[in-house]
């Protein structure tokens, strides 16, 4: 029982960290490659999550749809929806200093959150969208495993079947049938996101983006369409954030506007990217896992202070991460895994 709980927690931990890693990769395309500031990550994340939820849930009277479509279509829809929002915001702000983009993203995230709360026909408002199906959850059941065990030599098969039928087996199955599949799905999509972003980084397009970041006028003088390249990067990054949203929705099975506050959706992702090393995809991954580990570890504050002080403990945790961000920016702005050729910014 003990280690089944630990296993469940481990699976849960890596799954959430993986979703954050996808978000961080998306932000890396925007900030790391191109120097764009997006303070509305939570908004793009939410658009992806709700799009996928509406596409994949069974028909419901409480919100738009659902359309009962397969999970991959949910992910694709989420990416397209987030990309569309990004096109609109980007079109308005790409010609201007990045401060304006930053302010505009704050605005769009806030408006998305208001809409999620108020447009009940679309999102069921504050009550949220329940019963979002887990991807491929029916694949790993007792019969499947028993079938697999049949491939083993007889004495071993008997032992495995015995274990599977016992209480330990039930616990293992419970983990395997749901969370483990989700974990695999998240890791597969993380690998996909990584592959896209890394390909983009080493491509000629990626080099143009870095050149824009270092010397915008020079790139413009070389005849490149700076605004267009920047917009492409912003849209790609936002689409990846939308993908993370779909993964999240189908992993937790229930979403409501509360899940998309700037604190979790935006702030933590920024800390992850800065801590890992902006511009570097490995850095983005490392940052996501390390900061998620740290954030989870600060949970002990809540436990130590007791339920009575739960809100204070929560605030204290956020404060610690906020201070950590400043310390990193001042002492190690290049992050844990610095981008090649970019030393500390001092």
């Amino acid at each position: 029982m003990e280690w089944a709980g630990l296993l469940t927690y481990g699976v849960f931990f890596v799954t959430v960290a993986g979703i954050y890693a996808v978000l961080t990769l998306g932000l890396n395309v925007q900030f790391g490659f191109t120097g764009q500031i997006n303070i509305g990550i939570a908004g793009f994340f939410a658009v992806g999550a709700y799009t996928s939820a509406i596409l994949t849930t069974a028909a419901s009277d409480h919100h738009l749809g659902g359309f009962g479509l397969p999970f991959p279509i949910g992910v694709a829809g989420a990416m397209v929806a987030s990309a569309l929002v990004a096109v609109v915001i980007g079109w308005v702000t790409m010609r201007l200093r990045t401060d304006y983009l930053a302010i505009a993203t704050i605005g769009i995230a806030e408006i998305i959150r208001l809409a999620l709360k108020n447009e009940e026909w679309l999102t069921n408002g504050v009550r949220g969208v329940p019963a979002i199906p887990r991807p491929f959850s029916e694949t790993l059941e007792f019969d499947t495993l028993a079938g697999l065990a049949g491939l083993l030599p007889d004495p071993l098969e008997a032992t495995v079947l015995e274990v599977l039928s016992g209480p330990l087996g039930a616990a293992v199955l419970e983990v395997l049938s749901g969370p483990l599949v989700s974990l695999v799905v998240v890791l597969v999509f993380l690998a996909l996101a990584w592959w896209m972003v890394e390909r983009a980084r080493v491509s000629p397009w990626g080099r143009v983006l870095r050149a824009i970041r270092e010397n915008e006028d020079g790139v413009r003088a070389a005849g490149k369409d700076v605004v267009r390249c920047r917009l492409q990067a912003f849209v790609l990054g936002s689409a990846i954030m939308g993908m993370a949203g779909a993964l999240y929705a189908n992993f937790v099975g229930f979403i409501s506007p509360e899940a998309f506050l700037p604190l979790y959706g935006t702030f933590l992702v920024w800390v992850m990217l800065i801590a890992g090393g902006a511009g570097n995809n490995t850095g983005a991954l490392v940052g996501a896992f390390v900061i998620w580990l740290l954030w989870s570890a600060t949970q002990f504050l809540t436990d130590a202070l007791g339920a009575e002080y739960a809100t204070q403990a929560g605030a204290l945790r956020v404060l610690l991460i906020g201070v950590l961000l400043q310390v990193i920016l001042i002492l190690r702005p290049q992050g844990l895994v610095p981008e090649n050729g970019r030393k500390g910014r001092h």
């Binding site: 930053a102 700037p262 809100t311 204070q312 605030a315 906020g322 400043q326 920016l329 001092h346």
Partner: peptide
């Protein structure tokens, strides 16, 4: 002050972090 010699975008991110930190302090 320690970030002044760096690109202004870093100050922007820093101030976002300060915003979150101030809010936590208020809650505390």
């Amino acid at each position: 002050r320690r970030l002044r010699r760096v690109e202004p975008v870093i100050l922007l991110i820093s101030s976002f972090g300060i915003a979150i930190a101030l809010r936590s302090i208020i809650q505390l």
